[in-house]
């Protein structure tokens, strides 16, 4: 490869007004802006990202830099430490930039957490982790809590109770 063809830099401006310089090799993984890279680089433009803050973009960039086989590991570490808000930002950013693999990983991770909500008796803890509030009527919420406590892992029985209208 000739030296004139060395990696170009794509500039982004995040929602919290920070400018980011991202290598082309990473930026091409953002499906949304892939087609505009040539134009942007030739005209020295900055791409605004109104939905993505600097911290999240840094994570997305980090993700894209890793090889596919290292990503699993990154995801494990990040997600275990990531509170729900970070996971949420990551999902919104990944969708906005259209980084398919990341979208899938995060949604998978969220699915797992959702499953945990029903498994644990103290489901509020998990709801806190992904930062979500229950807005069921208090009596429904109390009924759910009671069922989880008594049935524990017998979730398929829970299926039945939930759907037989016991919660009404």
């Amino acid at each position: 490869m000739s030296s004139s063809k060395k990696s170009r830099i794509v500039k982004f401006k995040t929602s919290d007004d920070k400018t980011f310089e991202v290598e082309e090799a990473v930026a091409v993984q953002f499906e949304t802006i892939k087609s505009m890279i040539d134009y942007v680089c030739a005209n020295d433009c900055t791409i605004p990202l109104p939905n993505v803050n600097a911290k999240t973009l840094a994570m997305v960039v980090e993700w894209c830099k890793k090889h596919a086989d290292e990503r699993d590991q990154l995801m494990e570490v990040d997600v275990d430490e990531a509170p729900g808000a970070v996971l949420y930002d990551l999902l919104v950013a990944a969708t906005y930039l259209r980084v398919e693999d990341l979208i899938h990983r995060v949604s998978q991770r969220v699915s797992k957490m959702v499953i945990e909500i029903g498994k644990l008796p103290e489901e509020e803890d998990v709801r806190k982790t992904i930062n979500i509030k229950s807005d069921f009527p208090p009596q429904v919420e109390e009924e759910l809590r009671k069922l989880r406590r008594t049935l524990g892992p017998l979730s398929d029985v829970l299926v039945l109770f939930v759907s037989s209208g016991l919660l009404e």
Partner: peptide
């Protein structure tokens, strides 16, 4: 959460029980 993202999460659930758990998170 936008519906298409919610749908992504839903489509990762394998058992009916998990599906019901999803439905008991919030209204």
């Amino acid at each position: 959460l936008p519906e298409d993202l919610l749908d992504l999460i839903l489509s990762r659930l394998v058992t009916l029980s998990d599906y019901v758990r999803f439905s008991t998170v919030c209204m």
